[in-house]
C-alpha cells in the first residue's frame, strides 16, 4: 500500500466514500493550500471496501456543514502530537446556505445572482432539501 507519513498536528478526514475525496478537497480549497496536504484515493477499508482519505498538516477551520452535505458518513480526526485528540462525526445539517443549487429551472435563483440561498432538510433518508424561494425539493 502507498505510504504517506502520519501528521504531527492537523486534521485527517476519514471514511470518505470512494470517489468523493476530490470533491471535498476542492470544496475546502485545498488545491490552493501552501501547507502539506494529501488526497489518497481508493484506500482499502474494512467498513467501506474502498474509501478516500485527506490529510491536512495544518490547523484550519472546517465547514462541517459543507462536509456533511457532500458525505454525511465521514469522520474528522483532530491530530496533535501525532495522536487523535478529537473525533467528529458530521451529520446532514438542518439548514444550509450557499452550498446547494436549486434544480428547478423555473426558480428565481437560476436567473438572479443571489448569495446564500437557504435550503432546509425535508428528508434525511433521501437527503432532500427544500429551496427557500420556490419550495422545490433538491436532492444532493
Amino acid at each position: 500500500m502507498l505510504n504517506i507519513d502520519s501528521i504531527k498536528k492537523g486534521i485527517v478526514i476519514d471514511h470518505i466514500k470512494a470517489g468523493c475525496g476530490y470533491k471535498i478537497f476542492k470544496e475546502l480549497k485545498l488545491h490552493k493550500a501552501d501547507y502539506t496536504v494529501a488526497l489518497i484515493k481508493n484506500v482499502p477499508s474494512k467498513q467501506l471496501g474502498k474509501k478516500d482519505l485527506i490529510k491536512i498538516e495544518n490547523e484550519i477551520d472546517l465547514d462541517f456543514k459543507v462536509l456533511g452535505i457532500i458525505d454525511p458518513n465521514i469522520t474528522i480526526n483532530i491530530i496533535k502530537n501525532e495522536e487523535i485528540i478529537d473525533k467528529i462525526n458530521v451529520k446532514l445539517p438542518k439548514k444550509v446556505k450557499g452550498t446547494l443549487k436549486c434544480k428547478n429551472p423555473r426558480c428565481v435563483t437560476t436567473v438572479e445572482n443571489i448569495e446564500d440561498v437557504e435550503f432546509t432538510l425535508v428528508n434525511r433518508e433521501t437527503k432532500e432539501y427544500k429551496c427557500e424561494y420556490c419550495d422545490t425539493n433538491t436532492s444532493i
Binding site: N104, R106, C107, V108, T109, T110, V111, E112, I114, C131, E132, Y133, C134, D135, T136
Partner: peptide, 22 residues
C-alpha cells in the same frame, strides 16, 4: 420565476404582495 416576489420582499422597505409567481 418562482420565488421572485420573495426575493423582492427581502430587499424591500415597502410591503410586497405576490400576484403570482410561475
Amino acid at each position: 420565476k418562482e420565488g421572485a416576489p420573495k426575493l423582492a420582499s427581502k430587499n424591500s422597505d415597502i410591503p410586497v404582495i405576490n400576484a403570482g409567481d410561475g
